[in-house]
Nucleic acid binder design. Sequence first.
DNA 1: TCACAAGATGTGAGCGGTTGCAATACAAAA
DNA 2: TTTTGTATTGCAACCGCTCACATCTTGTGA
Lengths: 338, 338
Amino acid sequence: MAVTLEDVGRQCGVSRSTVSRVINDSPLVNQRTKDMVLKVIKEMRYSPNFIARSLTKNRTETLAVTLPDIVGGVFPEIIAGMDEVASRHGYHVLVVFLGGARPHSATVEKLIRNRRVDAVVTVASTLSDQQVVALSEWNMPMVCVAQKSPLAIIPSVLFDNMGGAISATSHLIAQGRRHLIHLRGAQGNYDADERCRGFRVALEQAGLPVDASREFAGEFSRDGGARAVSRALEQGIEFDGLFAANDEMAIGAMEALIRHGKSVPQDVAVVGFDDVDLAHFIGLSTVKVPHRELGRAATRFALDLIEGKTVSESEVLSTEFIQRASSTPGRQLNLLQS
Amino acid sequence: MAVTLEDVGRQCGVSRSTVSRVINDSPLVNQRTKDMVLKVIKEMRYSPNFIARSLTKNRTETLAVTLPDIVGGVFPEIIAGMDEVASRHGYHVLVVFLGGARPHSATVEKLIRNRRVDAVVTVASTLSDQQVVALSEWNMPMVCVAQKSPLAIIPSVLFDNMGGAISATSHLIAQGRRHLIHLRGAQGNYDADERCRGFRVALEQAGLPVDASREFAGEFSRDGGARAVSRALEQGIEFDGLFAANDEMAIGAMEALIRHGKSVPQDVAVVGFDDVDLAHFIGLSTVKVPHRELGRAATRFALDLIEGKTVSESEVLSTEFIQRASSTPGRQLNLLQS
DNA sequence: TCACAAGATGTGAGCGGTTGCAATACAAAA
DNA sequence: TTTTGTATTGCAACCGCTCACATCTTGTGA
């Protein structure tokens, strides 16, 4: 078995409490004793048992982050951001993938009820608003990322969906495009709604007509984007600019456009949202979301909550428009069949 | 405070051990008592305190996975695979990003010495062989992923680097390419060495000459690939086929080739290794590495080790060659400047 | 009717720490 | 010298749960 406080104490001829004080750097211990104990600790290769300590301190120094099962390019960034801040404070990050056949909130509820973690960070759409509310009953610090918190007591870290959508749309307009369409995400989805709102605001700002029939609903997927474009074309709607609610949709849309003989950006300028890795390679103009910073900010909130500090209700990070070939006249964009 | 065994016991008029027996589903309890206790547990919303249980059981039901700081497309897959198997056994996954300014092994050593996790899974290159050996001293179950274990007692989960490299190279040869070059990863890197070996073996099998001057060293990065190609071209080496040791290098190589006026696949057919998301989009032929399965297998090993089972020394997963535009005559590959 | 086995439950000692309080020692102040 | 204070250290309870063992019921066969 591992060496314990008792063992060290016996070796030094002091009690376990004295040794405990030494490792906790308490001022209540004589310097000479301290030195001796430290020496023995090193010799015996003693390390405090984290579990035992947690039991008395009632702290696990662990944060849980819940993620949807689908592995995308954005989650690793969020986790990395979390770990960055967490580790700096001696905390660790436990990842919990939900979704698929797994009963969504049961896993998290168990984690919380067992007091296995000190706080839970939930990332967009992993848990529904109702589930978040239900879990909040267990009075465990929680933080929502990229999801508007359903309760005032739970802080959320958001990013400027509308601002991003406005800059994307305005960019298309600045390029001289006047006949825009928008491929939006599912109705009721916070991100989707906000981005759609931004699209409209930008049109209004430019004095262009807002027309709901030029907004096409779809899922946040490549296929959804492709289908939405096909629908638009079938309906005979004319457009020279397209703002998709995320990059996946934008890519699907571009593929569909090309299949239909349209060229990007000549015939249709395309802009997406998220700035996934792919966007860079394909040359897709998009709105960059600061994922890593999202993770960092969420962790800061979580740590503050754990310490009992009052935190601001939420934080909104800004986004940045990035222009690439898909909306730059004269540049060539080619997708490859694979 | 949360409700404890004692509380439930008092409420039912039984002792804490009886309640403990009930929640552990021991057969030593009368059915009537059991029913009553279960009812009260539900009413009082009791959940066992995981920390306390860990203290006696000396088990945390947590696995640590150490990853390099660089967020690539492959790690999320590995984590997801781990979580998949782990959660099925009631385990959780703690992620630890190492690298950057962080003292590499100190963090992990602390984790281990504090007995905060039951096992550690280390993914390629996160920890050096020496560090793995040093950590193994603490007699904590460990598993290496995509890294040949430096000690016989530590199992490793590998994938068939050489087989993949052979199939990639053979494919180029089958396409009629006779003047191949190889962009290899750093000398001493296990993956790099194996893939290079595979390249050679395939050449030999085809009766083609093996020539070390046609192997160019570089890092596993886009830049490394680009530089290696430039070097080859500057040296006036002729080639119509290129096997890069990973996709990143292959992509960098293709960019460089195109900058130098060569077309892919007409002038040079290119094959990579890994099958990152991008490969699909760009149309890069490559060798698919089963990352998720790597995570699953590693977790199975880890769980077996925790249970004290003897495990096979290592497991080698097979790879699969995927042909795409970059090595298919007649297909067009275009990279976009961004 | 009594001894004894088996079944059901309680007791108490840990697991490895933390921490309030008491105890001791030694020095300075009265 | 006695009192008071301060710096050190030990004691023991506690965190919430597990488990070996003791105890107490009951039921059964002689």
